[in-house]
Structures are given as C-alpha cells and as structure tokens.
Design a protein around this nucleic acid. Sequence first.
DNA 1: TGCATAAAGTCCGATATCGAACTATATAGT
DNA 2: ACTATATAGTTCGATATCGGACTTTATGCA
Lengths: 148, 148
Amino acid sequence: MPDDRTALFFELFNEIGILNQLAVTLFEAHLPDGMLISHFSVLNHLVRVSDGQTPLVLARAFQVPKTTMTHTLSGLEKAGLVETRPNPKDGRSKCVWLTEAGRRFRSDAIAALGPDVADLSAQFPADRVTAALPHLTALRKILDARRD
Amino acid sequence: MPDDRTALFFELFNEIGILNQLAVTLFEAHLPDGMLISHFSVLNHLVRVSDGQTPLVLARAFQVPKTTMTHTLSGLEKAGLVETRPNPKDGRSKCVWLTEAGRRFRSDAIAALGPDVADLSAQFPADRVTAALPHLTALRKILDARRD
DNA sequence: TGCATAAAGTCCGATATCGAACTATATAGT
DNA sequence: ACTATATAGTTCGATATCGGACTTTATGCA
C-alpha cells in the first residue's frame, strides 16, 4: 500500500548513493597518491570538532565499523598525519592527535579542492545547500537512533 | 574567501557519506547472506527503468567503474538473478536481462524492507523526502556533467 | 579497402572494507 | 574483594572495489 512511499525512499537513497560516489571520485582526484576520502574526512573532523578523540568515537561519528577506523588511522599514523597516545582515563583506549603535518595536509587538500568547490557553488548556490542540509541531517539522526 | 561555502559543501558531502553508510548498513541487514546493496540496486534499476541494458550503461547509471559493474553482474548471474545475451547491435557488447528469479528476489527484498521503511516514513514524512530530493537530483546532475 | 583510433568488456593486482574472534582492561553486582 | 559481563582496540580472513593493461570489435578517415 505505501508502495509509493517505499519507492520514494528508495529513490532518495539511490540518489544519495550516486552522489556519494560522485563526490568521493571528485575529491580523491585531487588528493595525493594513496590518500583517500576516509583519511581526509578523519583529519577534517579532528580539526573541526577537536582532536584527542578515541578511535571508537571517530568510528561512530562516521558510522563505520571500528575495524575500518583502525585501518584508516593506521594509514594516517604511518603517514605521520596523526599520532596516538594512551588514554589517561581508560587503559584500554587511545587518543588520536593531529600532527603539524596532519594540519598542513588538511589545509593543502582544501586549497587543492578550492577551484572545484568554487565551480560547483557557481552552479549550485549555497542556499540550495542550506535548503537540503537540514532534511539530510534530520534523516541521519533518525537512522542513527534506529541503529541501537 | 568563500571558505564558508567550502565548509558548507564539505558538510553536505559529509552528511551524504554518513547517510549512505547508514542506509547501506540498514538495507544489507535484511538481504540474504551474500547479497549486497550493489546487487539489489542493479536489480531494482533493471525493473524500474528496463532490462536489456549493457553493463557500461549500468555502470554509468550508478557512477561506478566498469570493472566494478562486471564484478557485480557476475555475482548476479552466478546467483541466477540476471542473464546476459550478446548485443545484437554491437558485437563487443552484451545485454543484461532479468530472470524470473531476479524479479522475485527484488520483490522479496522490498517486502522484507517494508517494515523498516514504514517505520522510517513515520518519523521522516514523505514531504520531507520530496522537499530534499530535487536538490539532490540537481546536484547529482551537475556533478555528473562535470565528470567529462 | 585498409589502417589508426576508440570503445566494450574482462583479467589481474592492490587495497579498502568489514564481520568474527581474540586480548586487555573496566565496570557492575554480590 | 571477586567474579561475570561489557567495552576498546587489534588481528585475521574474506571479499568488494578499483585502476591499469589487455582483447575484441566498431568507427573514422585516407
């Protein structure tokens, strides 16, 4: 009966999947060699929110399994973009800190993406972003809460 | 200077990435054993749009590399959900056709997802979907056109 | 017609992702 | 304090994804 509604949600998620695909491809084209969106996203998150967070908190922020976050962080650490220290509050845990190189890498990446973003925002004005974003955020929170 | 705009787009794509993650996880939880969203999405596309399309057309529809589509289709074919026949118009090419099992699989999957979607649409009404969707579609088309 | 270039699909190698099982530490209940 | 259970993180094995190279067939141009 609410087959229309089902179809509507499928269409939404389909569109989200394709957009994600396109955005990842676009962004990764401007990142150096082995760096992926997953790496950049974590660095960006650490700058925007704050560093010193634990891997598990980061995994939850991006909604990826913790094994995936372990792998991503090990790549960042090997590249010298983050460093980890024991969590003083919890012996099982670690905290992830940005290095200077990590901050620089993030800045450089943003600068490299600048022209593309400028181009994009010429065709897709900021007010359309701000029109769509609250809906997406709301939906994300609902899905997030369901995942219990 | 338009650093705000850059940040805004990053936020949008970040939200899209997380939503994609959540949606894939939610959907795959209801698919049988080895079946993934990639498989379901292709079946759904073949039903909604039409079957008989070539792998390359499908790859473009989902914005994935053609090697990925080859792999996904081989999984579907091995499972007996699609079959391929030579393209009568082009000797290099094949056409992908749904089997009865493929149509049934897609129906069953949708039925299995029904309760979740119903649940979701109770919390996130259809008009919010229809409010957000045109923006996403427009952005997708812009990104799509850029990729030349 | 013949030849150069492009396009469709596959194969291969590298690696990102992820679930399951494991280790070490914390927490809760008695 | 002691034991049972839960949690943080890693390791391991399987596989999805993807870029690059290759094969085969089309197409464009002389």
